[in-house]
Design a protein around this nucleic acid. Structure first.
Length: 650
DNA sequence: CGGACAAGCTGA
DNA sequence: CAGCTTGTCCGG
């Protein structure tokens, strides 16, 4: 999983004076321009006036041809080729990534078939930083004493040495492990996967990490960043929140943030933690499709500091990396941190019952309960048929089944065309919804419970949200006022507490045609579990399914994610999917040319090419070294080409 | 990327 | 053959 480019690094410079004639009167540095289309480095003279401010990582401006562009110094003391006339650096633009991060960017560019500049941009401050502040106290320090006993108590509680209440939940709604020494145990070796059930407050792990010194804590979302930061500060830890705290982190602090924080400089780095490592928010969707977990792992390895991956449902990638160092609380502690699960076995239900069988309706009508219904289908209907002639509604252009995003409009999910809701076979105007989406479910729910029900869908593209702002439409976080909400999985991100979370059609998740479907479904259920708290609370997770024996259902029911992990490990082995192998997805107009070259690689570096399917090819190798070497060795043809290493939606 | 320059097409 | 488009290469 780790590996280094086999090709010599782009940035390796021969030190001046190594073979005699170093020009002592001029200093030359190598600069990588901050331009997506340029991946070459150029050498420049350092003006006398810049003094000793030019180091590896420094942001500079350079004259490149007729224009000026930004860039990073990637090597100093360079011996330039003798035949080029050097120009001086045009300007200093402040501090940039540390030399370690420059090297890490080089590695990441190889690992995810991207350009170093895209990583260096992520590793750079978002505004000019000319000097660093003084470092913050590492770990638990005098500041804590100054704050008095309250924070001491918070720390003790976080460490699991708080007052030993029996299982009933503390007032703040978090669930406390009976024996929290597992958290300390996780940091005892260089690496560990720490499996903590959803209701446990993961901030305790960050506090433990910070006790070793300045830690790097990666969270999948802003909400967790807030929680973790608050708890760290309560415990007296000096925290810098990325990206605003870039300079403070570089100077020395425990750094907390989301994905991009994997690239934050941390002065005196002592430990790395990835919170909810299974969460796909840690992966960048746009190419290069880098994953914060993998960057964190590599960073910790290079810095020789402990790395702990935390998750209620560790990914196969994490488990494989952990090499058996999986730290788990006692069975009862783990079980207690998952909610009570009601499995609604729908195998014998009348299909006409729809999405709301009596068991659910009863919970829905209980006035004291806040209910979130999850249905991962947007719009009103995803499959429709004519009430008159029974014909399925399909696209006139490409024949795909059309959907009903809103009343009266049919839309093709394949080619994007829309048309009025009319049957093409008989001209009938009435279509019946065979598979309903959230909008329709909302209407039905309102009728069932007799009160307003809010619908929550993902906030769509930035353009449309701007549109909403302009038209002054309502707050996207609807559902604050209503007791019952229904939505896609976005509902689980936008609601912070619930008494019941009901998955109206879990089978859609369990049977999704993606190799990661089981893990993704479990991740979704873990997220739902967070809204509910542990078994001691009154939260219930209701799962409607025709697959009650599916390992994902059984895992949540017993609070035992190992049931999924084991089944999944076998399946990945059998199907040769990651992490047993390494995958990349190649698409775009230039993909065919690129793939043809890949196919022709000599035996020693051969990769397996599958496809095309829907204009996309899959490239498979026994490991990432072979895959990344092959991708790096294959020239990019002109034209648009997307290479997604470790695609999650295959 | 953006400019420079070379090679290819068109029209009188 | 000028005048314009399209493509390829290069920048220190």
């Amino acid at each position: 999983m780790t590996g280094r480019p086999s090709e010599p690094s782009l940035f390796e410079a021969e030190p001046a004076g190594s073979d005699g004639e170093a020009p002592l009167d001029r200093r030359v540095v190598r600069v990588l321009p901050d331009e997506p289309a340029i991946s070459k480095t150029f050498d420049y003279l350092v003006p006398e006036a810049f003094g000793d401010q030019v180091r590896v990582g420094t942001r500079v401006r350079i004259a490149l041809g007729p224009r000026r562009v930004g860039g990073w110094v990637v090597a100093t003391d360079v011996v330039a080729p003798p035949d080029v006339a050097l120009r001086p650096l045009a300007k200093l633009s402040g501090l940039g990534p540390t030399p370690e991060l420059i090297e890490l960017a080089d590695w990441a560019a190889w690992r995810w078939a991207g350009r170093p500049a895209s990583f260096l941009r992520t590793a750079s401050p978002d505004r000019v930083v000319d000097r660093l502040p003084s470092p913050l106290h590492p770990g638990l320090s005098d500041t804590r004493a100054a704050r008095g006993d309250r924070s001491r108590a918070a720390e003790a509680e976080a460490m699991g040495h708080g007052p030993r209440d029996p299982l009933p939940q503390p007032a703040d709604g978090t669930y406390r492990l009976g024996d929290a020494t597992v958290i300390r145990e996780a940091f005892a070796a260089e690496r560990a996967v720490l499996r903590l059930p959803p209701a446990v407050d993961v901030a305790a792990v960050a506090v433990q990490a910070a006790s070793l010194g300045h830690a790097l804590v990666l969270c999948p979302n802003q909400e967790l960043v807030g929680t973790v930061t608050r708890r760290l500060r309560q415990a007296g830890v000096g925290v810098a929140v990325h990206p605003g705290g870039w300079a403070q982190g570089a100077a020395g602090a425990t750094v907390v943030g989301t994905r991009a924080t994997a690239w934050a400089p941390v002065g005196g780095l002592a430990a790395v933690v990835v919170v909810d490592e299974h969460d796909e928010a840690h992966a960048q969707e746009r190419a290069p499709t880098w994953h914060a977990r993998e960057v964190a792992i590599e960073r910790a390895r290079r810095a020789e500091v402990p790395c702990v991956l935390v998750s209620p449902c560790p990914s196969q990638e994490a488990l494989r990396w952990g090499q058996g160092r999986l730290v788990v609380p006692s069975r009862s502690d783990e079980r207690g941190g998952w909610p009570i699960v009601d499995v609604v076995d729908r195998r014998r239900d009348d299909p006409r019952t729809g999405l709301f069988p009596p068991a659910l309706v009863k919970l829905l009508r209980d006035p004291g309960r806040r209910v979130v219904c999850v249905l991962n289908r947007t719009g009103r209907g995803r499959l429709l048929a004519c009430t008159a002639c029974g014909e399925l509604a399909r696209c006139e252009h490409c024949d795909a089944a059309v959907t009903l995003p809103e009343e009266g409009v049919l839309s093709c999910p394949r080619c994007g065309r829309t048309r009025p809701a009319v049957c093409l076979a008989c001209g009938g105007l009435r279509l019946k919804i065979l598979r309903q989406g959230v909008s329709r479910a909302r209407d039905e729910l309102e009728a069932l419970v007799g009160e307003a029900v809010a619908e929550i869908a993902a906030r769509t593209s930035p353009a449309s949200s701007k549109e909403k702002d302009r038209t002054g439409a309502e707050d996207p976080r609807r559902g604050r006022g209503t007791r019952v909400v229904v939505g896609t999985e976005a509902a689980l991100h936008q609601v912070d507490r619930a008494d019941v979370v009901a998955f109206l059609d879990l089978d859609q998740e369990l049977l999704a045609p993606r190799y990661r479907a089981s893990e993704q479904a479990l991740g979704l259920l873990a997220r739902a579990a967070r809204l509910l708290g542990g078994k001691a609370g009154r939260g219930r997770l209701l799962l409607q399914t025709r697959l009650p024996h599916h390992e994902v259902v059984q895992a949540v029911l017993h609070g035992d994610p190992a049931r999924v992990a084991q089944a999944e490990a076998d399946r990945r082995e059998l199907l040769r999917f990651p992490p047993v192998t390494a995958l990349a997805e190649v698409s775009g107009p230039a993909a065919d040319v690129f793939v043809a070259t890949l196919r022709a690689l000599p035996a020693g570096r051969a990769v397996e090419v599958l496809g095309p399917a829907d204009g996309r090819w899959l490239v498979r190798s026994p490991d990432h070294r072979i895959l990344s070497d092959a991708l790096a060795a294959t020239p990019r043809p002109p034209g648009r080409l997307r290479v997604a290493v470790d695609p999650l939606r295959v």
